[in-house]
Every structure is written in structure tokens, then in C-alpha cells.
């Protein structure tokens, strides 16, 4: 506000011309839009324009080298016939449907109990948060070595000591996806715990006191008070975590660099397929069609979740 008034004063000085004829309201609007125009312009150039361009490219056969030629829906037709795409589609949704609930339940449980811990509370919280600060690539490589078969894999060494049969983990078509998912859940846990704890703290303690006086058990308090009042936090985290799992890339790529998305494509998410189509095969048009599909999925999933978890009035 101060800025606007000052500007008014400056423009009002002798010699100020154009500004004098505008009303205060118009001037304020001009200023507001002046500031807003910057991020809008920025977004238009680096976000909206490329997005629109990607939609257009998805109807062409552009390969970076030759001029793009319009080929109609051929890329989409090819995509829906490609068994690899459906496998990748299934993988992506496995990451989403299994990963999101597990990570939220684990994060909530930890946050719920951590909230009550007083002993070294800050330190424990920091420990949970630490993985979130670590570079995904570095973390993925550490886990990749954990998962190795004998004689170098730590997890298999421990299994050997306590008499559990050795597991192939990321060398198995059945276990690889879940092995990678565990690392992704672990990596995102710290963030979710912090958000859940903030949500828990925001619930007024008077509600709990009243409930206890009325003789409600712990389980009932959790169900009737904590969870309903935590809903805005939960909605945020569900959407946030879903988008994260739909876009999973770093963990998968770094844990399977020798055979990206393997073995046999069993861990490959959509984003990795897009990356390979675009930057290994240089089929930019085909890759653009895949990004449009990913965009649509992200949009539908996000809208659906917002609708399901909406505030019922």
C-alpha cells in the first residue's frame, strides 16, 4: 500500500503528466497487474508455451533432425498398440496404488507416535527428515548396493546370518518394483511426517481434553477427532505423494542404470519410457504423445482425488 501511495505522490510532482489523469483505483490496478504480469509472462514462456508445443509435437514425427511432419494420431495409435506401454502403464499405477497408501499410513503412524515422544524429539525428527534432504541419485546407489546378491549385498548378508533364503531383489522381475518402491517411500517419509506433525499440532488440545472427560477411548479419539480434523493435511499429502509416484524416475533410473527400467522392463515407469524414447531413440513426436498421456493421467488422478476427498458441506 505504501508503495502505491508513494508512487502517487511522485507522479503528482510538477512535470508528472500521464499519471495525473488516472484515478487512484486505476493506478492501483495498473501496479497490481504490472507485478502480476512478470510471473505470468515467465510461466507463459517457460511452461505454457512448451506444454502447448508438446501437444502439437505429439501429432508429428519430429526426430530433432528433420522438420516435423504432421502425422495425425499415428503416435497415439502406436502407443496404444505397444505392449511395452501397457507394461509401463501398469508399473506406474502399481507405484501409485501401492506406494501412496503405504507411505501415508507409515508416515501417519510415525508422526502420531513421534508427536508424543518428548525424549530427543528434535533429534529423532531430524533423523526421519534426513533422507528427504539427500540427493535421490546418491540414495538410490546406496540402496542398489544394499540389494546386491552375495557376497556384497548387506541385506542378503543379514538374511544369510539369520537363515532366511537369499533374495534376488532388483535382479528379479517380481521383486524389483517393490524393492525400488521401498526406497522411494523411505525417501519421501521425512517430508510427510513433518507435514502430518504440523497438522496434528494444529488440532486444538481442548478437543482432546473434552473427549477424554466424556470418556472416549484412544481409538475413538483417533477416529472421531484426529483423522477428520487432519483431513486437509491428508488431502494435500495424498495429492502430493500421488504426483510423486506417478512421476517416479530418479530411484528407478539410478538403481537400474545397466538395464534402465529392467529387468525386462519390470520397474520401468512412464517417465523413464518418455526419457528413453526422447533422448535415446530421438523419437520426439512419439515421446511427446507419451507426455500428453502422462499429463492427462496426472490431471485425472489429481481431480479425482480432490473430488473424493472434498469437504462435504
Amino acid at each position: 500500500m505504501a508503495t502505491i501511495e508513494q508512487q502517487g505522490a511522485a507522479a503528482g510532482r510538477p512535470g508528472g503528466s500521464f499519471g495525473d489523469r488516472l484515478s487512484m483505483r486505476t493506478k492501483r490496478l495498473l501496479w497490481v497487474w504490472g507485478f502480476l504480469a512478470l510471473p505470468i509472462l515467465f510461466y507463459t514462456v517457460i511452461r505454457f508455451y512448451p506444454t502447448a508445443q508438446a501437444f502439437w509435437l505429439s501429432f508429428t514425427n519430429w526426430d530433432l533432425l528433420r522438420p516435423a511432419k504432421f502425422i495425425g494420431i499415428a503416435n497415439y495409435a502406436k502407443l496404444f498398440k505397444d505392449p511395452q506401454f501397457w507394461k509401463v502403464f501398469k508399473n506406474t499405477f502399481t507405484y501409485l496404488i501401492v506406494g501412496t497408501p503405504i507411505s501415508l499410513v507409515v508416515a501417519f503412524t510415525i508422526a502420531f507416535y513421534l508427536d508424543r515422544v518428548r525424549f530427543m524429539h528434535g533429534f529423532i525428527r531430524a533423523l526421519y527428515f534426513l533422507p528427504y534432504l539427500t540427493t535421490a541419485a546418491a540414495m538410490a546407489w546406496v540402496w542398489r548396493w544394499f540389494y546386491q546378491p552375495p557376497p556384497i549385498g548387506v541385506i542378503n548378508d543379514v538374511f544369510g546370518m539369520i537363515g532366511i533364503p537369499q533374495q534376488p531383489f532388483i535382479r528379479s522381475v517380481d521383486q524389483a518394483l517393490y524393492s525400488i518402491m521401498v526406497t522411494a517411500i523411505w525417501a519421501g517419509l521425512g517430508f510427510q511426517i513433518i507435514i502430518f506433525m504440523a497438522g496434528l499440532r494444529a488440532i486444538p488440545t481442548t478437543f482432546y481434553e473434552a473427549a477424554r472427560i466424556d470418556g472416549l477411548g484412544e481409538w475413538a479419539i483417533l477416529r472421531k477427532i484426529t483423522l477428520p480434523l487432519l483431513k486437509p493435511t491428508t488431502v494435500f499429502l495424498v495429492v502430493f505423494s500421488s504426483i510423486g509416484f506417478l512421476r517416479i524416475f530418479d530411484q528407478v533410473y539410478n538403481m537400474t542404470t545397466n538395464d534402465p527400467g529392467g529387468p525386462l522392463g519390470s520397474t520401468k515407469p512412464l517417465v523413464l519410457m518418455i526419457y528413453q524414447t526422447a533422448f535415446n531413440s530421438y523419437a520426439m513426436g512419439y515421446a511427446a504423445a507419451q507426455t500428453v498421456v502422462l499429463f492427462t493421467i496426472l490431471l485425472i488422478v489429481s481431480l479425482l482425488q480432490l473430488w473424493i476427498l472434498r469437504e462435504k458441506k
Binding site: 522381475v173 529392467g262 529387468p263 525386462l264 535415446n280
Partner: peptide, 17 residues
């Protein structure tokens, strides 16, 4: 890249599946 991947998959189908 794709031809190499194809050979990797070919061996993996026998070795893993």
C-alpha cells in the same frame, strides 16, 4: 541403445523367466 536393450532382454527372459 534399443538393439542393446533387446539383447539384454533376450538373455534375461531365459535367465530370469
Amino acid at each position: 541403445a534399443a538393439q542393446r536393450q533387446n539383447a539384454i532382454d533376450m538373455a534375461n527372459r531365459v535367465l530370469l523367466e
